[in-house]
Design a protein around this nucleic acid. Structure first.
Lengths: 251, 251
DNA sequence: CATTCGGGTATTGTCGACAATCGCCATGGT
DNA sequence: ACCATGGCGATTGTCGACAATACCCGAATG
């Protein structure tokens, strides 16, 4: 029997479904950082038993979104700015390598698509200077394409299977947006140029510089203690409308 | 109440204990790569129920040692040489960054200890040219100290919490050993020199070169199809005494 | 003789209940 | 008034059993 397209119907298990549900809830901040995730409550909330729920929690623990202590239960991780900065060091190293490999591996078609993506971004930057959420997603798309182009599943796994969720959570909750998307766009363009020229060394250098500048932008908004404020604002599940702090944080 | 030393008695749960037991069994090759891990068998083998066992398996899946498909059970991952090479690209990027950060962060005491460690390694290299297992562990110790010195828990987690186990499994089962430990030792020495001089850029360059050469050494032993032979040899739980392939694989 | 269909078996997914442990609060002592 | 201690409630860890699904093998048919 040939493998039909519908034979790949995603065989979903309850634990898996609940896992992504809780995951999005955590990223959206419906479960505040540091809040306790007691099993009976969640089990009744999602209408399942504690068995699959526990597996979902272990999985989330593997994703780094939940921390578990033996007889005290699971809590949503509290992502401090220090941890976010640590992650950005990892991203600098890994995505720098990704850019280098992408310059070697990326197909011409992929490069063309990447340029097209930059055009879309350019329009978004020009058109709506306010609505930066799409911008963020587009930014992630850009970085993801480069990482994917490396043909290195390990790299993809680490960057977009482990780190991605935590960074996304922080971004989502602190509503950290790009204050200077035009600058980021320019940096993106030059990175793609280097890749198109098959200059892996330059691509790595530019990508590292790009992410490094984003890290520095994050590090500079330290005195405003934005995250703890965000946590306090979210604690009661109230929509947080913090003043979006300055920054050119986009990477 | 002050925190006594014995208040840190590791509160261990059955799932945790079985997790490490299975983990070591997988690394040692008692469970061959690709072999099925059916739950009733393992449950009776370790004298526990299927509940904790499933959690242990999910945890091992998070560690990348086990792959799980929804209604077909869990299998030990098959680590191809391609994947190992992919991991070495990640290591090159990450440990290069680690060396750079270590050059900035490492205390003088740590540097002294690192030099002492190199002395021990030098004696081992000189004394027992054959028994390379200790050498491997020592090699890991060296790299771990540098990574730890970065004060970047994310880096430590990825390198020694995720990647470490898989590389160790490959190494253990293919009995890949250092054919030229003296060369590796020399490279180690120069890396520490750079760190001692607080030359992060040089430390990163040297570390990347060090790991890159190890990756190339792995990549060059391709035609000997060593891993599949090792798997075949292990399949029946028989001690595999393959001829240890050439290589200067040490990183 | 190859192929496909069907049933049987084994394994996984899920559930509810019991036991062990932890945190909290009241009570008593110093 | 403060601290230690005991009990109580709640939550986690563990277990056995049931239901659902997938794999395997034999039989029937072209």
């Amino acid at each position: 029997m040939v493998a039909t397209a519908e034979s790949v119907v995603e065989q979903t298990t309850i634990a898996d479904r609940v896992c992504v549900e809780i995951q999005t809830a955590i990223i959206k901040g419906e479960f505040p950082q540091g809040s306790k995730l007691n099993e009976p409550m969640l089990a009744t909330r999602y209408g399942i038993s504690r068995g699959p729920l526990r597996e979902a929690l272990r999985r989330l623990e593997g994703l780094g979104l939940v921390r578990h202590v033996p007889h005290a239960g699971a809590r949503v991780v509290t992502l401090t700015r220090e941890e976010l900065l640590e992650i950005y060091y990892v991203r600098e190293a890994l995505e720098g390598m990704a850019a280098r490999l992408a310059a070697e591996m990326m197909s011409q078609a992929e490069i063309t698509e990447l340029y097209a993506l930059l055009e879309v971004h350019a329009e978004q930057v020009k058109a709506v200077a306010g609505r930066a959420y799409f911008q963020q997603e587009g930014n992630w798309d850009f970085h993801y394409r480069i990482v994917k182009a490396t043909r290195n599943p390990q790299l993809v796994q680490i960057l977009h299977g482990d780190l991605y969720h935590r960074v996304r959570m922080y971004r989502y909750q602190s509503s950290q947006q790009s204050a200077r998307p035009d600058k980021a766009l320019h940096e993106h363009r030059r990175i793609v140029d280097a890749i198109a020229e098959r200059d892996g060394e330059l691509a790595e250098l530019l990508m590292r510089r790009h992410i490094r500048s984003a890290r520095r932008a994050i590090g500079e908004q330290l005195s405003a203690e934005p995250l703890s404020a965000a946590i306090a604002g979210i604690q009661e599940l109230s929509p947080h409308t913090r003043s979006q702090t300055t920054s050119e944080v986009i990477a």
